[in-house]
Design a protein around this nucleic acid. Structure first.
Lengths: 350, 350
DNA sequence: CAATTTTCTTAAAACGTTTTAATAATTCGA
DNA sequence: TCGAATTATTAAAACGTTTTAAGAAAATTG
């Protein structure tokens, strides 16, 4: 790269008849500078169009004011919303973001990614890769101590790790309870791949609500799918073949709920009369499914913001010298959005 | 930030009984090092767990191996897909990504964002903010010369600016022609906000196809909406009130198409028999709308990849010293995905 | 007004690399 | 075996900041 900005702090210093250190002080305000010289310095900066080189500053400060974000599945609704939240709060706190995407959720090149981020001396890292299979086995107390402060999104508790996550169990229970309250008695679940931690949590939530109500929560009522609408459609078909008495479905995301809706249309099951359906995520489209989908809303952007806040706190604490920043776990409560697919049919043409 | 990696290149040098310069050479391979010493150096690195400080390296190299990405609307399908493509290709070429999001597409703090990126000495910038209203007025040849190489996504040609974009005009023409071929004669358009450049392009494509076929393309046939399903629903209602003879709709995105579908259901218009509908984007859900949506597929990830390739080329060229890298413009061709909402009804229960 | 204190400035030393210019160690013909 | 040519290595000088330790100037005392 050719230098576009060859004007350096000593250029400014010369022009202001002052030393480089003084320019630095005037700029950062870390030590006092007389009003007169500050004035001169600022004018020189203005006139020369000086822009501090953040790389040099980071080098000597041993802090880059940068956070690393490692994410997976940005093409999906949840992760991209969360990233927006992360970016907002990071900008708010004055951090820049270094983005790394994994193209598969499984193990792969975790080390390469972490090396790159630490080589760039990020102040902290947000690991926004969902826990699936054993892709998180590398995380342990020992390893974490050798890394900058980290926050993990959406994973099971682990010693030494700070976690921010939606309370998936509560969300699923909310959905299931709503169906129970509406008088449904045989409530199936269309799950995502059970290798995903969130899926297991959501199934657990579904089961706990049914158990509490004394209803059937046997494995025959869970149909696995892979998050896609196509799979949701197939899953419902299989489930109904097994249990024709199913009168409600809790789908672990809105897309699979959409597939289920699609199947109901095609097979002449009325929704919600014959089969009630509840989704998860509250994607923007879900209100426009036919019928409009009842679903569970996660606060995705908030998730990102909270993660950055936590990370910021940890960074500050480590700077203070209190080495063993105690890890924290935060669970965000989701909420139920009731629409037509689960209850009385109220909506009419706009 | 406390230093996690206090081990520096001179530590390695000492341990390998060699000078720092030699370690550097062994590592970068920029000048020859004897096999024996290289061996010793590599072992020392291994033993000490040395990791080069990329900030220091960037400082002296005057190049950070980093690209800045400025994006808007990551929570939507298109931008997030494109970002994925950008990241993939950037990783491929060895760049890290510095991400900045604008939270509104309009003018706002462009300068602050650019300053931050140049202060971090990015090698190039991808401006992935759609052109809406006058948010791109700041872009001119003069200004661009003072900035690192840039690629703009989805905007009108401007002197001195390199652009990568989908051929929206062609995509809209494709959709419209398809409806014409299916025998439709009164084809309305549900447009996004005409302040958006892409929207104007898509309307132009729609109009050109109709003009070529000698069909009505009057303003009464265009209904403005704001990209959302809600607005699409309302727009169709208004359009039908004005022109009850409409027998087909080209919606400028899938969400508005979804809203239109929704309105048709609610108002007892059959799709595609009474009204055929074509969308734009080919979101994953679109295949599961009821009926499945015919739509135009943009190659969004490809868009991002191409942008990075172009940028990489410009960076290389500028390094070579050929200062005035001639700006380039590339248009990616979209394709039509025919499903049920526009034609014969073929799909049955899965 | 001299003796302190306080407030500003500064030159020089970091920060952790790469590159330059010079030197030392090889290899190679003759 | 001797220079000449090549190949490896190094010490020192960048890169553009901040910080340290010290000194100068100004303000405050008695």
């Amino acid at each position: 790269m050719q230098q576009r900005h060859p004007v350096t702090i000593v250029d400014v210093a010369q022009r202001a008849h002052v030393s480089a250190g003084t320019v630095s002080n005037a700029l950062t305000g870390k030590r006092p500078v007389s009003a007169a010289t500050r004035e001169r310095v600022l004018r020189a900066i203005e006139e020369l169009g000086y822009q501090p080189n953040l790389l040099a500053r980071s080098l000597v400060n041993r802090s880059s004011n940068t956070l690393g974000v490692v994410a997976y599945g940005l093409e999906y609704y949840g992760p991209s919303r969360t990233l927006v939240g992360i970016e907002q709060q990071a900008a708010e706190l004055g951090y820049s973001l270094l983005l790394d995407l994994l193209h598969r959720p499984d193990r792969q090149d975790v080390d390469a990614v972490l090396d790159e981020l630490t080589a760039r001396r990020v102040d902290g890292i947000i690991w926004a890769v969902h826990e699936v299979g054993d892709n998180h086995v590398w995380i342990n107390e020992q390893r974490l101590l050798a890394l900058p402060p980290m926050i993990f999104l959406t994973m099971e508790r682990r010693p030494g790790a700070s976690i921010v996550s939606t309370d998936n169990r509560a969300g699923a229970a909310l959905a299931t309870q709503h169906l129970i309250d509406a008088g449904r008695r045989t409530i199936g679940v269309i799950s995502g791949p059970p290798t995903w931690w969130e899926v297991r949590e959501r199934i657990a939530g579904w089961r706990s609500a049914l158990d509490a109500a004394g209803l059937d929560a046997s494995d025959a009522l869970v149909a696995e799918a892979n998050w896609t609408a196509t799979a949701g459609e197939v899953a419902l078909q299989a489930l109904l073949a097994r249990r024709p008495d199913v009168d409600a479905i809790f789908a672990c995301n809105d897309q699979m709920a959409l597939g289920a809706l699609h199947y109901c249309h095609a097979s002449q099951h009325r929704v919600p009369e014959d089969i009630s359906i509840v989704g998860f995520d509250n994607t923007p489209e879900s209100a426009f499914f036919w019928p409009a989908l009842t679903t569970v809303r996660q606060h995705l952007a908030e998730l990102g913001r909270v993660a950055v806040d936590e990370l910021h706190g940890q960074i500050e604490r480590r700077v203070q010298g209190r080495e063993a920043a105690t890890p924290t776990t935060r669970a965000l409560q989701p909420e139920l959005i009731v629409r037509e697919s689960s209850g009385r049919r109220t909506r009419t043409a706009a």
